[in-house]
Design a protein around this nucleic acid. Sequence first.
RNA 1: GACUCGUUAGUCAAGAGGUUAAGACGCGGCCCUCUCAAGGCUGAGGCAGGAGUUCGAUUCUCCUACGAGUCACCA
Length: 471
Amino acid sequence: MIRTRFAPSPTGYMHVGNLRTALFSYLIAKKNNGKFILRIEDTDQKRFLNDSKDFIFKTLKQAGLKYDEGPDIGGEFGPYIQSERKEIYLYFADKLLKDKKAFYCFCKANNKDKNICRCEELDDNEINKKILSRESYVIRQKIFCGTTKFVDLIYGEITINNTELDKQILIKSDGFATYNFANVIDDHLMKITHVVRGCEYLSSTPKYNLLYNFFNWEIPKYIHLPLILNNNGEKLSKRHGSVSFEDLINQGFLPEAIINYIAFLGWSPDDNTKELFYLNELEKIFDIKKISRSPAIFDIKKITWMNGQHIKKLPEEIFLNFSRKYLESKIDDKNIDIKKLAKFSQTRINFINQAGELFDFLNKIKNYSIDLFKREKIKCDLYISNLVLKNSLEIFCIIEKEDWNEKNLKEKILKLIDKLNLKSRQVFWPIRVALSGQENSPCGAIEIAEILKKTETINRIKIAIDKINIK
RNA sequence: GACUCGUUAGUCAAGAGGUUAAGACGCGGCCCUCUCAAGGCUGAGGCAGGAGUUCGAUUCUCCUACGAGUCACCA
């Protein structure tokens, strides 16, 4: 049974690199019918706020990464919060001390010149004396000569000379274990079979292996994931821009789009021509062998496109639920069919919260430039615009209020196109500009006219004609 | 600086000795008797450099360059 874990520290913030680690860890477990465990690494008491744990629970839930064991749901290997496991680490540190695999170090914190430390040579008497006189100390791991070799499922075999490894601190002077120690103990005790984590741990892995060997524990399989960088090629972090899950959600990204995109950062499926996937599909096709070794840059343009794709795939009613509040906030007229507006916007927005902005022009037309009427590409100029608008004004005026509907309007305009002997674009363009005041609009001229109703349509056409003739 | 890892178009990437070196985003063009978007078609753009091994290297080996990560009483 494969058991993987995600072990974040509760910083109240989850950047996409972290989330991607969680996702891959989850996927590896699920693909193999294994278990995915959440563990909170809060051994640094200075850094963490209490409610950041809830933030992690919330984010994982929102992303759909359901864990089988964790702090809030329990499990047979708990507790799943490291600050509640203090005694466990102390017990194992003591064991190491007795076996001479670790030593007390009384050097001052921030002692830059570590080579000067002679604590390892202290005899038991000296140590006891210092401890009795309440000198503060840490417990460090001993490093013996030789080389350490390990296999990473992605990077292959990595060998390192033990002289490169430092005598890392296992227990800090406040009595808490360091992450470096705690994660080894916990992974073993929680029976984690595959350790999935970011590449930044690649070079400390040998030290962890030494620890496993000291205890005579089985070393787990390692899967180090390539880093995700921002577009400056820097490692993702809080300082370098808004690429946290929460920020993306606030910008209007769908959780499934974020998951889909980050799954493809450093991984690709066998059939690499398809790239729109939901989490449950990824669970089936995910394959460790296809994880890449090189870092990937987070491309906001591509995830934006992907978000648009996911928005289009949303069932109509779901999209309506999402977009309703945005649309309603923009539209004064309560009689307008929100459903219809939602339909117009679904294929043209990349962000879920943009649905309303498209219809800004309905309430109030902005002061547009008459240059909008000129469009060489479709052979439309001020002369034609003027002609079209005057003619359509006549038509619109004759139509009765009760006959004001899309079908009827279209019929009449098509006749006008014939009569004026123009291309349909040359006719629809000026009307649409007059009604929307914009170069682009979420729907066509006739559709806007229908939504606007007779009075407002005529009103806007008149304004446009005046605009052109004043010139 | 030391150690470790990496390098296929601007970006994500497939390919693992013989390919016209896929596909996607982005960018350009065209089509869709209504804009834009969507959709369809299409164009430009790439194996970091140098040595080897080989009949033949993007693919294997080595060197160089460049990039990244680690070197905390942070995780």
